[in-house]
Write a protein that binds this DNA or RNA. Structure first.
Length: 570
DNA sequence: ACGAATTGCGCC
DNA sequence: AGGGCGCAATTCGT
């Protein structure tokens, strides 16, 4: 029998056995049973959830993707939940819970990836969750797991932060399913127009669009090579070298360094080729259905805590096609992005007061210029990005000493994260998500390089690997904490949006339709757009306070009300 | 011939 | 010697 569970006052919950019956167990916050489990049929399950929702339970279940789509199909929304699998992953790896029973136990089905993720095809997603048994999960008792998780959090040095992280992660799992359910409004005919403007008419299978064909002829003429093939990197390098262009690869950066009549058409060709293959007509055929693009979001899909997406390249939608994202008649979009999120996160984490002042009531990079640390906004930006990514070369590297002088706390913070990574240690985000340990291979390499008589080659390799891991941990703390801020922002906004349309189903009131790391899109009736914009800002302020308390760091968002996505300055 | 790895590039 | 991804096409390796 599968048991999903709900906890908290008034809560109840569920699980499905082979016949699809669902068992609900009422729990308190520690996971203690408040009464005997009871069973409802699969058909009655959504209604049972509706009854319980009146008391705002927190549903505790193994996997939001398993349960929530069925509920949304039945127009049942859940206010909050615990996604045990996502939370387990966090607690299993967190330094703060390393001594817990949960973390010391042998790996179990809770450590496996979601068994419900792969069935994300649009035709099956929303009806099979309850019916399909899963062998591993048959053994996995969510009540017991919930208790282990609560105990692990309670036993950690800072239970509040971890609790917050688990709540945010779980809220994100609800948003992910809701956004897939609602879909991103997508106008396929507008998308086609955009493609025709850039590429020419859709060509027959296997042929190049007209514009690309013209460019191909230009390239061949310029290279004096009638067989030059820009689609093949290997052949293209040979063609370029024959024409006297000294390249070792065909990537854009390297090509752009050379002056030659073939370069410009080649770069244009590659740009269009990318558009055609990644977001061309085939993409429309595959991913747009009924005026909606429904990517499968994968909360926690990135080690840092960022989301990933499965199918359609949802998190890489090029600006070229964003004009096809058009609001329904009578509706509009509220598009918001957090301004300079990562450096502001670093400011709050490191307590750098000078940087906090630089970012107060203005663009942070402008503020850095105004402080006299660097001379242009572009320098400020590239310098800060370099500091957070571990860049050492070029402009970025040159800016670092100035930034370190002006903002010692912030720079020291990321340098320390890098140093820890290089030494093989783990680092953690503000709320306690911990970086993975370096691989056995990495550790061995470091070990071997330290041996007496290790070759110079080996020592160099070890150093390269060490630096590389340091760049990863350096970035992990910032990117991961930014992801936490974004989750808090989105969770708060989700709650606030629900209040703008009480009693209305998700798709008939303002709802989130897109999320991109530090940017959100809300689809809303036109009349509520201003109210939504206000909630977006309030939720952003709240997210900063929730994570960091009363620190003097602002998290401003730029908000645009637009009827198509390309009109938001991105 | 086929799956794995690489290349290149889109997003943040 | 720049962090994290996903995806399509090409190229490599067996």
């Amino acid at each position: 029998m599968h048991i999903a569970v709900s906890a908290h006052t008034g809560g109840a919950a569920l699980g499905a056995d082979a016949d699809g019956a669902v068992t609900l167990t009422e729990l308190d916050e520690a996971g203690r049973l408040l009464g005997p489990p009871f069973t409802v049929s699969r058909d009655d399950f959504p209604q049972a959830v509706v009854q319980r929702e009146k008391h705002s339970p927190r549903w505790v279940w193994d996997d939001t993707r398993r349960w929530y789509p069925v509920l949304l199909e039945a127009e049942v929304e859940v206010e909050r939940c615990v996604d045990l699998r996502l939370c387990h992953t966090i607690l299993r790896n967190a330094a703060a819970t390393a001594e817990s029973e949960l973390a010391r136990a042998a790996p179990s089905s809770w450590d496996a990836p979601s068994a419900w993720a792969e069935q994300g095809e649009t035709d099956t997603l929303f009806d099979l969750g309850l019916q399909r048994g899963h062998d591993d999960e048959a053994q996995a008792d969510p009540v017991e797991e919930f208790r282990l998780q609560r105990a692990a959090v309670a036993g950690s040095a800072d239970p509040n932060r971890l609790s917050l992280l688990l709540a945010a992660e779980s809220a994100g799992s609800l948003v992910a399913i809701e956004m897939q359910f609602a879909g991103l409004p997508w106008d396929a005919s507008r998308h086609n127009e955009l493609l025709v403007e850039l590429l020419g008419e859709r060509p027959p299978l296997g042929q190049r669009p007209a514009r690309m064909h013209e460019l191909l002829l230009e390239i061949r003429a310029a290279l004096d090579d009638p067989a030059a093939n820009p689609d093949s990197p290997v052949e293209l390098v040979k063609s370029l070298r024959r024409a006297g262009i000294d390249v070792s690869s065909t990537n854009r950066w390297e090509l752009a360094r050379h002056e030659h009549p073939a370069i410009e058409p080649l770069l244009t060709y590659k740009k269009l080729s990318r558009l055609l293959t990644a977001n061309g007509w085939n993409w429309i055929d595959t991913w747009v259905d009924g005026g909606r693009f429904r990517p499968v979001y994968v909360p926690g899909g990135v080690v840092t805590g960022r989301w990933a997406a499965d199918g359609g390249g949802a998190l890489q939608l090029p600006h070229q096609v964003r004009g096809a994202v058009i609001a329904d008649p009578g509706w509009t979009f509220v598009v918001a992005d957090a301004a300079q999120l990562e450096p502001r996160i670093l400011t709050a984490m490191s307590g750098d007061r000078a940087m906090a002042a630089a970012g107060r009531d203005r663009d942070l990079y402008d503020g850095i210029v105004a402080s006299g640390a660097v001379d242009t906004r572009a320098h400020a930006k590239v310098g800060m990005l370099g500091a957070m990514y571990g860049g050492t070369t070029g402009e970025s590297g040159r800016m670092l000493p100035r930034l370190a002088r002006a903002y010692p706390d912030a720079i020291r913070f990321v340098e320390e994260a890098a140093r820890l990574g290089e030494s093989g240690a783990v680092v953690s985000t503000h709320l306690g998500r911990t970086s993975p340990r370096p691989s056995g291979e990495w550790l061995e390499l470091q070990d071997d390089a330290r041996q007496e008589g290790a070759s110079e080659v080996l020592r160099t390799r070890a150093k390269t690997a060490r630096r590389s891991w340091g760049r990863f941990t350096r970035n992990f703390v910032v990117q991961g904490t930014a992801a936490e801020w974004a989750l808090a922002w989105m969770a708060g906004l989700r709650r606030r949006l629900a209040l703008l349309g009480p009693e209305l189903p998700l798709r008939e009131r303002p709802h989130l339709v897109f999320f991109l790391h530090d940017e959100i899109v809300v689809h809303t009736p036109v009349g509520l757009a201003d109210a939504v914009a206000a909630e977006v800002r309030t939720a952003a302020d709240e997210a900063g306070t929730i994570l960091f308390g009363a620190v003097p760091v602002q998290f401003p968002v730029s908000v645009a009300i637009v009827d198509s996505y390309d009109k938001a300055k991105g």
